[in-house]
Simulated scan of single mutants.
Amino acid sequence: MQVRHATNPTDFKTYTTERIRQDFLIEELFQADAIQMVYTHYDRMVIGGCVPVSKALQLAADETWKTGSFLERREAGFVNIGGPAILAVDGEAYELQKLDALYVGRGATSVELASADSSDPAKLYFTSALAHASLPTVKISIDKANPMHMGSLDTSNERTIYQYIHADGVQSCQLMLGITLLKPGSIWNTMPPHLHDRRMEAYLYFNMEEDTRVFHLMGEPNETRHIVVKNEQAVLSPPWSIHSGAGTASYSFIWAMAGENYTFKDMDPVPMNTLK
């Protein structure tokens, strides 16, 4: 378990490239037969990943938060970006194909992560937030997610935002999660940018080639910085930061949010003439 502490925007202005990457970029999430996790002090979110190959992996509580089980006071959303997966929650099995997701509510005592076929292992990404109530475990496939078609080819940002865990879909306490798929020829996401100072966000970039990159933009609108991101790396986005990006080729990303408000539309647009 890595721990990432919160940063205030005034100090952030002085950060070097290496310090920005150290605090906000998660470079290694997917390792064979191991669960990798990062605990951030931004809204106490946990970001994790694993590739179960030869055995099922048990999601266990870390010493960091002093609880008996991982979901004792938490909820979690899992997304499969690899081969077929089998998730067992308190003994009940759920099969997840690629881009299927699973919401698991507070209080589940046993979560096992496995691959249906070791020759085509699952690749599971998950985010977890604190929860005040226990809600049902629900599987969501991409055809059941709520699609929002946004942008245009003229502005290189034609994309579909699939909402999985949100106010009008699978219910949670505060965690929201979805997937954005860009259309061919589009490379920009969330431009013009926005802020939502009531909540943080995490991005996992995936569906990229080995030699392609995404330039993830962050920082206050008048003090922007960037992080160069490879395939299957994640970025933490503080509440005070914009969060947009452009890729050298096609890419997709999983977004997850936690914090004060529980509405996808809680955004403060940033006028283009204020960006610096």
Results as ranks from 00 to 15, higher is better:
Met1Cys: 09
His5Ser: 13
Ala6Gln: 15
Phe12Pro: 00
Thr17Gln: 13
Arg21Ser: 11
Phe24Cys: 01
Ala34Thr: 15
Pro52Lys: 04
Ala56Met: 14
Ala60Asp: 09
Ala61Arg: 02
Glu63Val: 14
Thr67Glu: 14
Thr67Gly: 09
Ser69Leu: 08
Leu71Ser: 03
Leu71Trp: 01
Arg73Asp: 15
Gly77Arg: 04
Val79Trp: 05
Ile81Ala: 06
Gly91Gln: 09
Ala93Cys: 10
Leu96Val: 11
Gln97Phe: 12
Leu99Cys: 12
Gly107Asp: 06
Asp120Val: 13
Asp120Met: 12
Pro121Met: 03
Lys123Tyr: 06
Tyr125Thr: 08
His132Tyr: 08
Pro136Leu: 11
Lys144Asp: 12
Met148Pro: 00
Leu153Met: 13
Ile161Val: 15
Tyr162Asp: 06
Gln163Gly: 05
Ile165Met: 01
Asp168Phe: 12
Val170His: 01
Leu181Pro: 00
Leu181Cys: 09
Gly185Val: 07
Gly185Leu: 07
His194Thr: 00
Arg199Ser: 00
Glu201Val: 00
Leu204Phe: 01
Phe206Cys: 03
Met208Val: 00
Glu210Ser: 11
Asp211Met: 04
Arg213Pro: 00
Arg213Trp: 03
Leu217Ser: 06
Met218Thr: 03
Asn222Met: 07
Arg225Gly: 10
Asn231Trp: 10
Gln233Leu: 12
Gln233Lys: 06
Ser237Asn: 12
Pro239Met: 03
Gly245Leu: 05
Ala246His: 09
Gly247Tyr: 09
Ser250Asn: 14
Ile254Gln: 03
Trp255Cys: 08
Asn261Gly: 09
Met267Ser: 11
Pro271Gly: 07
Met272Asn: 07
Asn273Cys: 10
